[in-house]
Computed example of a mutant assay.
Amino acid sequence: MKIAIIGTGTVGSALARGLKQSPHKIILGARDAADRATQSLAADVGGELASPREAAGSAELVILALPWDVAETAVKALGDLTGKIVIDCMNPVGMVGGALGLLLGHTTSGGETVAAWLPGARVVKTLNQVGAEMMADNAGLPHRPVMFMAGDDPEAKSIVAAVLSNLGFEPLDAGDLTKARLLEPFGMVWINQALLRGKGRSWAFAAVERT
């Protein structure tokens, strides 16, 4: 399957490296294909480079790995993605009352907002609940890290679950896309522990069952 990663920053780069050994073909959607770091990333993961619009248009699955403050303009510029599976791994964060917090919640979510920007796309909210380091490489953890996903299309979620497994996660279905309202605050729990409570970034959530 051809996967387009839109955005080559910290998260986009980590996902590209995490999928390097997968059977998927990676195409990086970058604003500046001449950037040396972006070219180095493409060479490292054996991926193609294209404009964001070209990358999204040529792929079967599109991963949005963009800062929220530029997301609307960038996502709408991708064109018509009707029928394509789109993973939204962005958390709608910004400064709220002088502290980092969610800009959306309770009655809507970033995932639902992305779906409104891309009518006809099969949006799945996931990969927002852990830091980039664990996306690139989570081998060696004592438990397989869990990754929840939410979306309205069962087939799309089945395909996304396989991609999550390629990245080393245990995929768990949280329900329809409105459940992004749960997953985005859950992502903030990781951010709070990692950045504000001193836990650092080398950890992930796991679902541990009694046997």
Rank of each mutant, 00 (worst) to 15 (best):
I159S: 05
W117R: 12
Q21Y: 05
S202I: 10
E184S: 02
R144C: 09
L41K: 05
R201G: 00
A59S: 02
A162W: 03
G120R: 11
V62S: 07
G140N: 08
G101P: 03
H106N: 14
A55D: 12
L127H: 01
T38N: 08
A139G: 15
S109W: 06
A43E: 15
W203L: 05
A121G: 04
K25C: 07
G18H: 01
L78N: 03
E60Y: 01
G101A: 04
G111Y: 07
E72Y: 00
L196G: 06
A174M: 09
K157Y: 12
F205P: 08
P92R: 00
L183V: 12
V189L: 14
E184L: 01
D176N: 12
I63C: 07
G46K: 10
D173R: 08
R122T: 04
L177A: 09
V146G: 03
M135V: 02
K20V: 12
N91E: 03
A16Y: 04
L102G: 00
D35I: 05
G105V: 01
V160Q: 02
A77C: 02
N128H: 05
A34D: 05
R122I: 03
P142G: 10
G120Y: 07
V114N: 04
I5K: 02
V163P: 00
G79M: 09
T82E: 10
A162N: 07
E72W: 03
R201N: 06
A16M: 02
L164P: 06
R197A: 12
D173C: 02
P92Y: 03
N192S: 15
L103I: 09
I6Y: 04
G18K: 04
T126W: 04
P52H: 14
V114D: 00
A162R: 15
A174R: 08
L141V: 06
E112R: 11
T38A: 12
G168W: 13
V163D: 04
D153G: 04
Q39T: 15
I87L: 12
A30F: 07
P92S: 03
T10P: 01
S158L: 15
M188A: 04
P23W: 13
A174C: 13
K179E: 14
T107Q: 13
M135A: 11
A71Y: 01
H143Y: 13
G111I: 12
G94Y: 03
P119L: 06
E112L: 10
I159W: 13
I87D: 03
W203R: 04
V123R: 01
S13N: 10
L164A: 11
G120S: 10
L78I: 08
P23F: 08
Q129E: 15
S58Y: 04
I26N: 05
F205I: 13
K2S: 05
L78T: 00
T82Y: 00
I27M: 03
V208M: 11
F148H: 13
A16D: 00
T10Q: 12
G168N: 05
V70T: 15
E60R: 15
E184W: 00
I191G: 08
A116D: 10
K179C: 07
G105D: 05
N138K: 01
A30C: 09
A156H: 05
A207D: 09
M90C: 12
E60G: 08
D153M: 11
A136H: 07
N128V: 00
V123D: 04
A65Q: 13
T10C: 06
A162K: 14
N166C: 15
D80P: 00
A207S: 11
L104K: 14
Q193I: 14
I5A: 09
